[in-house]
Amino acid sequence: MADAEKVDIPEDRQKEILALEAKLSANHFEVLGVPAGAPAEQVRDAFHALSRKFHPDRYHGRELGSFRARIDSIFKRLVEANNVLTDPDKRQAYFDANPFVRAAIRAATGTNPALKPQPAAPKSAEEEARDAERRARLARHPYLAKVSKVQENLARARAHMEKGEFSHAFTVLNIASQVDPQNADVKALLSDARRRAEHERSDADYKRGMKALEEGNEELALQAFKAAVNISASNHVAAFEAARLLEKSGGDPKEISGLAQKAVEAMPTKVEYRVLLGRMLDASGMKALAKKHFEEALRLGPDHPDVKKHVKKRWPF
């Protein structure tokens, strides 16, 4: 893709830049190339090491072409990841908001990062005040009575849903839910629309990945599969494909096991997923966890080719 461009960066470095750019949608730990759950010190050291390669100043005054934007977005992403993971409050908030990062840490370290004790009482009071204010603001308007507005939006949302336009439906429902957050119809439809919109986008990325795979561009495919997983952690086919590709290209077993973990969580009965996860955990030195998954795979499909190939040889029970 950068063939025609004249760029004043050594070829190796160009490759490194492209590789890191493809990884930018991954979680903060993966972006910085440290094990999930790595402590702040290690995160900061990794950030400094990467800055030495990817800070835009390293390329000051050179012909960069499309690489200028790439380097810029890489460095901004590195700063973001470093800022979040080295600040205790931001780090906690990040874990709380991203269950699959938590899962990755669990998979990598075998420990569960503590959930933040919920400051339930003041938080909900604050939210309630905020909601009340929002409701009052909307209700004040004489022309748009709450009920008719909500019904109107519901109808629009249903029409969108029927046509398969899930993101539109989600937007409309979001407005409706601000007007009337108690409305059960809106709530149900909203979560449905959100799920479907995510699936839709995730599925599109998955298809993009399969197409790239057909064309033999594994790097692009991997990127697409990872994007699909990021949008919807329950897209197990994408997670599995991403993990397989990563394994093929000799990627970090911990990252692969993170992806496999997602696939297993979304579809616990699939033998291939279990076997892959088990193998990766085994490779990362977590034998006990690996054994658990192998046993489960053995139970699910004793005659599955993967089980025969990988499990029975290694775990002759």
């Binding site: 003041p122 009071a125 604050e126 204010e133 929002r134």
Partner: peptide, 13 residues
């Protein structure tokens, strides 16, 4: 901007 409203509620409590 709703921060102010929230803090006000806190103060009133």
């Amino acid at each position: 901007g709703e921060e102010l409203t929230a803090k006000r509620a806190e103060l009133k409590a």
